[in-house]
Design a protein around this nucleic acid. Structure first.
Length: 256
DNA sequence: ATTACGCAATACATACGCTC
DNA sequence: GAGCGTATGTATTGCGTAAT
């Protein structure tokens, strides 16, 4: 499904498959709904989404970006009832897999192009994220973020949603603005623990002196934990090291 | 198809130079 | 001298490619 033609006059848009009506969703339920939409569309597909009337513009932008979409200029349409809708386009990135009552919200630096193409974070063979997370017991099914959310109470997001081949393609400003978005997401969802997977990005975007482990500053009621990047390229960190970090994060979530 | 090898990558420690 | 930013070196393994 590529860029659609303008909606024809007179269509009852609530039944159009290109329309995603989230007007009945509180903000806390939008990430899951957008992730579902992400899963059923391809890069470049466009949707007309309607948010609850009470939702502010910044929150809409946050949720669109977090959902793996980008907002686009609204096409000229004259469809009755289209007011208040926003055109969005499926991006080559990952969606936030998140919702209420999370034990842990895992936060990568940004999706790799490989991960964006398969729709699963840290999916590249050789990345130690999944082996370590499974070994720690934090996650129970390999490379299945939906199961992680539904069965394990573990959400996933990224500091920066733009997918790149290498983390050093990101600017400091992207880390700073991305960290602010993740903070707003934490205030909205209130996971027990935010686990940032990648020390360098956290240092660039938030605290240049940060060390791995639990951070002194929480985000509202959410504890913050930072651990090293599990990429195979970061070879001096072993699977055992990563497993131990995930164990600590799980224990923090259970205590919180 | 399988094996071997060199490159690339990230976190971290350390060194260096600059400014106040 | 303290504090900061930048540069450099190290450790280590996955990945891509060449060789078999």
């Amino acid at each position: 499904m590529r860029a659609p033609p303008p909606l024809r006059k007179g269509i009852v848009i609530a039944f159009d498959p290109r329309v995603l009506d989230l007007g009945h969703h509180a903000a806390i339920g939008v990430p899951r709904a957008l992730a579902d939409a992400y899963d059923t569309h391809q890069v470049g597909d466009r949707l007309l989404v309607r948010f609850a009337a009470t939702m502010g513009a910044e929150q809409q932008r946050d949720l669109i970006e977090g959902g793996g979409f980008v907002g686009i200029d609204a096409p000229k349409i004259n469809t009755p009832g289209s007011a208040g809708h926003v055109w969005i386009e499926r991006a080559r990135t990952l969606p936030d897999r998140a919702g209420p009552q999370l034990r842990v919200l895992l936060c990568g630096l940004n999706p790799s192009l490989y991960a964006a193409d398969v729709g699963v974070g840290f999916a590249r063979p050789g990345n130690r994220f999944w082996p370590a997370a499974l070994a720690s017991g934090l996650l129970t099914v390999d490379r299945d973020p939906r199961h992680a959310l539904d069965a394990d109470g573990i959400g996933m997001t990224d500091l920066v949603k733009r997918a790149t081949a290498r983390a050093d393609e990101l600017s400091r400003n992207e880390y700073v603005t991305g960290a602010a978005r993740v903070a707003r997401l934490c205030h909205l969802l209130e996971p027990r623990v935010l686990c940032v997977v990648g020390l360098t990005g956290w240092r660039i975007g938030v605290d240049k002196h940060a060390a791995t482990g639990q951070q002194p500053e929480s985000i509202g009621r959410t504890l913050v934990y930072v651990m090293p990047n599990p990429s195979g390229l970061n070879a001096h960190v072993t699977v055992d090291d990563l497993t131990e970090h995930f164990r600590i994060v799980g224990a923090l979530a259970d205590e919180a």
